[in-house]
Amino acid sequence: MAETGILVVDDEKEIADLVEIYLVSDGYKVYKASSAADGLDILSKEKIHLVLLDIMMPGMDGLTMCRKIRETNNIPIIMLSAKSTDLDKIKGLGNGADDYVTKPFNPLELTARVKAQLRRYTQLNPQSTAENTGGEISLHGLTINRENHRVTVYGEEVKLTPIEFDILYLLASNPGRVFSTDEIFEQVWHEKVYEANNTVMVHIRRLRGKMKEDTRKNKIITTVWGVGYKIEK
């Protein structure tokens, strides 16, 4: 199997070196960049499967780089930042990140999050991916193919990140059922929710934007106010 490439973009050399040590020990091929410009250059030349991206950098910041990556690429992006407020997390997720880790962080927790994102991205367990519907769901103009991660809305292909895909697939594979934000978080991220956060809402908002929900009267994803989200049968 080809090596899994991870790009670490951080202008703090000590942090980048520390992350590299842990990732290399887990068998990943690590590329490092101290600026967004260098990171984008590496991304254009090498096979990268995941990006660890610092937000606060001189020149182009991490949020801008994240948006640029999302113009052409749906690989997982984990933001690294010393800012830990909900607003900062929402900004990171709203710009296209899949996860957000605050500094200082436990390297073992970071590598666990890397593994979780890569499992979602590479689909290392294809035997279980199509257990409900043979891999494809079609309803309300939406078609989702679990095996090739292809999504179309009224015939137009929609490019989704792994997190966005898993949220949409969860709702579509359980039509009519309302999922609270906590349920979505626990089933998609496979983590318990210990405090209120807006992570799911930010991803739903981004997902709706990509599906052009604002231009349609009949929405695919329905908000059940005070309860959660669903896709009708």
Rank of each mutant, 00 (worst) to 15 (best):
V51Y: 11
T129D: 15
L53G: 07
N148A: 02
A97W: 06
V153S: 05
G96E: 12
G59Q: 04
L63H: 10
G176I: 01
S180Y: 00
V151P: 13
S180I: 00
N148T: 15
L124N: 11
L110Q: 06
G62Q: 02
P162F: 06
L139M: 11
M57K: 02
N95K: 06
N132Q: 11
N132R: 10
S84T: 09
M79T: 13
P104S: 12
I163M: 15
N74G: 14
L63G: 07
A97M: 07
G141H: 00
K83G: 05
K159F: 15
V158T: 05
L108D: 08
G94W: 03
E186Q: 07
Y121W: 09
K115L: 08
T72V: 13
L93A: 07
R150I: 14
G96T: 08
T72E: 14
V114A: 10
Y169T: 11
V51N: 09
L87Y: 15
S138F: 08
G62K: 00
N95A: 14
E131F: 14
H140Y: 02
G176F: 06
E157D: 12
G135L: 01
G92C: 14
P58L: 01
A82S: 12
D61F: 03
L108N: 07
T161R: 05
Q117E: 15
K68Y: 03
Y100H: 07
L50D: 12
A172C: 04
D99W: 03
M57A: 06
E147P: 01
R150H: 10
F165D: 09
H149Y: 13
L139A: 04
E157K: 04
S180H: 00
K159T: 13
G92A: 14
V101P: 10
I77N: 04
M57S: 10
A130V: 05
V153P: 00
G155Q: 03
G96F: 07
G134S: 02
L160C: 13
F165V: 09
L168R: 01
H149R: 14
G135Y: 01
V158I: 15
S128I: 12
T102E: 06
I78S: 10
N132M: 12
L171F: 02
F185W: 08
